[in-house]
């Protein structure tokens, strides 16, 4: 399936104490499906907002010709319910602080998104969850994640993100709260997972090591997308 990303005329504003503030302004961006892309920028430059837009959690400011299109799927025209369903099917998300449910086991955390669409979780999904956890080095699959190390928690979150074989993997500072050795481990595993699952990976990160593993990288500055170290990225 064509999974190229096309952004057109994207502006995104938020209301804060000082009034309406423009967070993002991206006239045009095209990315090929399956690319591994690193994004970096100062705090408040709009990195997280960009990820939220790319997965349809929020919509850009309404304007003529604005477009967030993954292959054939145009997010800006989808009603919220369809965007939820699309996100559940096509997008895996990984967060800086893991966002696990600490009172659920590793298996339960991985399978939680499956309960959004199944009453009884199919056996093949359980097998896949078990395989993913094993592949990521999680042995205590039935233990509560509240007792896991930070590195283990992030690996459980990664297994949850790829459970449905998403075509897009969005990671927001996935290694920022890990020590060096765990950060290296998670970087390797994230890249391996994205490659083996064939996902487009967009990672917001400041880690040079992570950027070094990306196909392409670019910088956000006050909501504007600037070409990064790789000018092959088509950015205007």
């Amino acid at each position: 399936m064509d999974n190229d990303l096309h952004l057109r005329n994207i502006r995104y504003s938020v209301q804060d104490g000082s009034g309406v503030r423009r967070v993002l302004d991206i006239p045009e961006l095209d990315l090929p499906g399956g690319a591994l892309v690193g994004i970096y920028g100062d705090s408040g430059s709009g990195k997280t907002s960009l990820l939220n837009l790319l997965c349809g959690l929020v919509l850009p400011d309404p304007c003529q010709g604005c477009e967030i299109r993954w292959g054939e799927d145009e997010l800006t025209v989808m009603p919220e319910g369809r965007r939820d369903a699309w996100r559940g099917r096509h997008v895996g998300m990984i967060f800086q602080d893991f966002q696990l449910f600490p009172h659920l086991s590793a298996m339960e955390n991985v399978l939680l998104p499956a309960t959004f669409r199944h009453f009884s979780i199919p056996e093949d999904l359980r097998d896949r969850a078990r395989d993913l956890l094993r592949r990521l080095g999680i042995r205590r699959t039935e233990a509560s994640t509240g007792v896991f190390s930070r590195g283990e928690q992030q690996r459980v979150a990664m297994a949850r993100a790829v459970l449905f074989r998403p075509s897009v993997l969005l990671a927001d500072e996935p290694t920022a709260s890990l020590d060096r050795s765990n950060a290296q481990l998670v970087t390797d595993e994230l890249v391996d997972l994205a490659r083996s699952e064939g996902c487009t990976l967009l990672v917001v990160t400041h880690e040079q090591v992570m950027h070094g593993r990306m196909d392409r990288r670019f910088r956000l500055e006050r909501g504007r997308l600037l070409s990064g170290l790789d000018d092959a990225l088509k950015v205007k």
Partner: peptide, 15 residues
């Protein structure tokens, strides 16, 4: 926070 996370993971309003 938990509900925002559920929505991010694909949960619907109905869920």
């Amino acid at each position: 926070r938990a509900m925002a996370l559920l929505r991010a993971l694909g949960a619907s309003h109905g869920f």
